[in-house]
Simulated assay, not measured.
Amino acid sequence: MNRSFLYSLKVWLLMVIVAPLLHLTLSWLMMHDPEISLFDEIKKDYIIAADIVLLLTIPFALIFWFSVSSLLKNHAPHYVKQALTSAIFIIMGLAFFEMLFEKGTPSLTSLAVIIFPYAIAGISGIWLHELEPAGVEEEESA
Results as ranks from 00 to 15, higher is better:
residue 55 L to R: 14
residue 48 I to H: 15
residue 54 L to S: 09
residue 38 L to D: 07
residue 43 K to W: 10
residue 33 D to K: 11
residue 42 I to A: 10
residue 46 Y to G: 02
residue 37 S to T: 10
residue 61 A to M: 13
residue 42 I to M: 13
residue 37 S to W: 02
residue 38 L to C: 07
residue 56 L to E: 06
residue 33 D to T: 15
residue 43 K to A: 02
residue 54 L to I: 12
residue 46 Y to T: 06
residue 45 D to C: 13
residue 66 F to P: 00
residue 50 A to K: 07
residue 63 I to S: 03
residue 68 V to L: 00
residue 40 D to T: 11
residue 65 W to Q: 09
residue 61 A to Y: 09
residue 49 A to G: 01
residue 68 V to P: 00
residue 53 V to W: 00
residue 44 K to T: 14
residue 48 I to Q: 14
residue 49 A to H: 11
residue 67 S to N: 11
residue 38 L to K: 02
residue 33 D to N: 15
residue 53 V to P: 02
residue 36 I to P: 01
residue 67 S to M: 02
residue 39 F to D: 03
residue 51 D to P: 11
residue 39 F to Y: 07
residue 50 A to Q: 15
residue 56 L to M: 10
residue 51 D to F: 11
residue 63 I to N: 00
residue 61 A to C: 13
residue 39 F to W: 10
residue 38 L to Y: 08
residue 62 L to N: 05
residue 45 D to I: 09
residue 51 D to E: 13
residue 43 K to G: 04
residue 36 I to C: 04
residue 59 P to T: 11
residue 47 I to A: 15
residue 42 I to P: 03
residue 44 K to N: 12
residue 68 V to I: 07
residue 54 L to E: 06
residue 45 D to A: 10
residue 34 P to N: 03
residue 68 V to H: 01
residue 34 P to Y: 06
residue 54 L to A: 11
residue 47 I to N: 14
residue 52 I to E: 11
residue 51 D to G: 14
residue 38 L to A: 01
residue 58 I to Q: 12
residue 39 F to Q: 12
residue 66 F to E: 10
residue 33 D to R: 11
residue 37 S to R: 12
residue 51 D to Y: 02
residue 56 L to Y: 03
residue 54 L to K: 07
residue 50 A to V: 08
residue 39 F to I: 13
residue 38 L to H: 03
residue 37 S to N: 09
residue 61 A to H: 07
residue 68 V to R: 01
residue 51 D to N: 15
residue 66 F to C: 09
residue 55 L to W: 14
residue 67 S to K: 01
residue 47 I to M: 14
residue 61 A to W: 06
residue 52 I to Q: 03
residue 38 L to Q: 04
residue 48 I to D: 12
residue 65 W to A: 04
residue 49 A to E: 09
residue 35 E to L: 12
residue 62 L to M: 03
residue 44 K to E: 10
residue 35 E to H: 06
residue 50 A to I: 05
residue 60 F to A: 01
residue 60 F to N: 02
residue 66 F to G: 08
residue 65 W to K: 08
residue 66 F to Q: 03
residue 43 K to Y: 06
residue 40 D to G: 07
residue 64 F to T: 01
residue 38 L to I: 12
residue 63 I to K: 03
residue 67 S to T: 01
residue 49 A to P: 03
residue 33 D to H: 12
residue 40 D to H: 12
residue 48 I to C: 08
residue 36 I to S: 07
residue 61 A to P: 07
residue 65 W to F: 09
residue 58 I to C: 06
residue 66 F to N: 04
residue 34 P to D: 04
residue 60 F to R: 05
residue 57 T to Y: 01
residue 61 A to V: 07
residue 68 V to M: 06
residue 40 D to M: 08
residue 55 L to P: 05
residue 49 A to Q: 00
residue 63 I to T: 11
residue 35 E to I: 05
residue 50 A to F: 11
residue 65 W to C: 03
residue 67 S to A: 12
residue 63 I to L: 08
residue 53 V to Y: 01
residue 48 I to L: 10
residue 44 K to H: 00
residue 34 P to Q: 13
residue 37 S to V: 07
residue 39 F to G: 02
residue 51 D to S: 11
residue 55 L to K: 13
residue 53 V to T: 12
residue 59 P to N: 15
residue 42 I to V: 15
residue 38 L to T: 02
